[in-house]
Design a protein around this nucleic acid. Structure first.
Lengths: 175, 175
DNA sequence: CACAAAGTGTAAAATTTTTATACACCAAAG
DNA sequence: CTTTGGTGTATAAAAATTTTACACTTTGTG
């Protein structure tokens, strides 16, 4: 991939925003910034954003990362196809785990290393490059459903929103 | 969910294995253990396992977690439907991130709290309960593909392994 | 134990979706 | 200006899905 497209950076610290913008501008075609996540949803409706770099604390004196987790969730609910990378100065294992479990593409700690940050953002975008085919995604999801229903195909089919016969068909195709 | 099925615990320390077995036996129908991950793949061919609790270090003197990451990958390659929870005494943010990015369902640090461990394992199994329908998974994946191809529908269809016309059909269905 | 309820495996026809192929149109690149 | 690559649309043929049905097995419960 030559072109890494548009990145949206959200951080309430103007100095950090400037530093990030400076380090990202050579890699990305367009670097957009927000000092507050409030308007992120409406912005995403208008602009084609390829990746989001999101700080985790926006309430003065609160460094739990709750804000970041909340906004991560809000963004992913409406735009699950846009990868969100979290960045925070107050990192611990538990927060990293919670962030990634809610769908963050990566988790970066401040202070960051410019080269490493850029590499990680590139990695995220390149990872989403090797997309699976619809059939592969389908097969994977079907296996999960059957596993979850302890092999009960009737329930699995129901859960998947297809008929039992269709599930038989699809299973035959997957050997 | 009443029944949490079978859990497979993999740890090279017999004492820890005993302690874990003791704490898990009341929640799980069956608790299987391995002191080495070597035989995990062949075991999974024979036994129906619902969740795996995997330690991250199996080489004496090496606590990088590389072993765990490698086995996580090996397990997920063959059985992506089985959730794998990592557990380690040598945790840091970076290792947690790498584990979760490779598909671990959760990341737990030693020493563990019995109640918390059981709750997290239950959460993992219950989270995989609310399965999306095939149509939802498909829609999500299609949006991702189109996004990745910057709106180029011909490329997106190709990437998804379907014809362009089929992609048009499916897009019409999703409004 | 016995019976009802739920699940399995299979089938055929009607319906819907997907593919293959084609054509006119547009925009960017050379 | 012309080639190349993408769009939007259309049609018939092929394939998959749904609907409905039936006989059989398992599971749970009084």
């Amino acid at each position: 991939m030559q072109n890494y497209g548009t990145i949206l950076v959200i951080d309430d610290n103007e100095a950090i925003l400037t530093a990030l913008k400076y380090c990202l501008t050579s890699t990305f075609e367009k670097v957009m910034t927000l000092t507050s996540p409030e308007s992120v949803i409406s912005l995403l409706e208008q602009e084609q954003v390829n990746i989001i770099l999101l700080d985790m604390n926006f309430t003065l004196g609160v460094n739990s990362g709750q804000d970041g987790l909340m906004w991560l969730q809000a963004i992913r609910k409406r735009h699950p196809e846009i990868p969100v990378v979290l960045i925070t100065a107050y990192a611990d294992v538990s927060l990293a785990v919670r962030g990634l479990k809610r769908g963050a593409a990566d988790f970066i700690t401040k202070p960051w290393d410019n080269d490493e940050l850029v590499r990680k953002l590139k990695d995220v975008l390149e990872a989403s490059d090797d997309m699976a085919t619809l059939d592969e995604v389908e097969a994977d999801h079907i296996r999960r459903a059957i596993d979850r229903c302890h092999g009960n195909l009737t329930k699995a089919a129901d859960m998947l929103g297809i008929t039992r016969q269709t599930l038989y068909n699809k299973m035959k195709k997957l050997q």
